[in-house]
Write a protein that binds this DNA or RNA. Sequence first.
DNA 1: CAATAAACGAACCGGCTAGTCGGTTTGTTT
DNA 2: AAACAAACCGACTAGCCGGTTCGTTTATTG
Lengths: 205, 205
Amino acid sequence: MSTSLKRMATMQRMQVTGLELFYTKGYYNTSVDDILKELSLSKGAFYYHFESKEDFFIQIIENLLVRKVYSMLIEPMESHDNPLEKITNCFENALETAVHNEMDFGFALSNFMGEFNGKNPRIMKHLQDILKIWEVNIVTTLQKGKFNGFIDRHIDCEAVAVYLMSSYIGIRTLMVESTPSARKYRFMSQLKQYFRSIEQKQVNA
Amino acid sequence: MSTSLKRMATMQRMQVTGLELFYTKGYYNTSVDDILKELSLSKGAFYYHFESKEDFFIQIIENLLVRKVYSMLIEPMESHDNPLEKITNCFENALETAVHNEMDFGFALSNFMGEFNGKNPRIMKHLQDILKIWEVNIVTTLQKGKFNGFIDRHIDCEAVAVYLMSSYIGIRTLMVESTPSARKYRFMSQLKQYFRSIEQKQVNA
DNA sequence: CAATAAACGAACCGGCTAGTCGGTTTGTTT
DNA sequence: AAACAAACCGACTAGCCGGTTCGTTTATTG
């Protein structure tokens, strides 16, 4: 294996299990040693590849978190069809992974924001950037949907985006350790109820 | 001053500033010494009144958090009038305190749940109990509203409650450190939009 | 083979933490 | 004023953590 490829592979391994542990136990409650123990690697190896724990985490954000948010929360809602249906399916799928206790990157995002808020402005900046990307993409999707006649023309797309992100982040918090499946079902039913109220009213035949 | 009164006063002071610091800096990131420094008290005083940091926090939950959630998020929505209006006003007021960076106990609740999730089941239990109380009260309020003809009879009140709690917890997370006032405004506009879709349709005159 | 990259692992520092405990102050009671 | 207990003090313990350094070893490459 090429030397730089091996370097990349090791860094990738560290980042993946790093994100996993940070996600489940929190950043401050996870020591560098915890991550290294999981991988049977040494501290020397860690500081050979990364400058510090903070830099390590920022690289995780840039390399893993951003891309996962894109692939799970942004790309699935891009299409020329009805954006409300796309968003519904996107949330449905994302919440289903949450029911199975798998990692959900939208939730990871809001979790980390809670942890770093007021403590580490540098990391907060990175997290807020991702959130902004998510928001902008939802707004764009909704505006296109309005243009294509799926959403009522009086609707404020920025407001809908904020409302959607809020409800998603909130339901994920509520789905932690308490009848997640039932709550997911109830949430989705009201999301659809809300969507019916902002969709383009059919012209009577 | 009676001796037990003095005891109560000191414990109360510790709990109030304890909650303040735990809320702003997080539980694990706030040391007992931090709280004591704020009050110019010593470690001895703390462990004279409380068994441990954990017990201290649980007493804070029971004595302060529960009551504040009641007075800010539950009692304001109880009435014989339109519950949707009451809930709107209640959220409006609660979010306004958030804009001014004052303490918001509903948000504190979800913050603490994020922090203790997977780390301290005992404390999690207490927090989830409060959340359940909130949920039950919203459901009751909505059902009464349905009975009194303010809410459409086909609406699932449990689902609405979950959706409301989700959106509230989520918007509070989003209002941290990024144009909170604009987001509050957008959120409220869509909350009202959603409420219009579940209210009792007027019978045509 | 020589050079370089990657990883090891032990040692150390400075700092922070929850909790302990013997002693001291304060206030009330008798 | 003596006695006593509640309230409080603060030095101390024992342990963990993140970060850093460094001499050594193993693997890869040219």
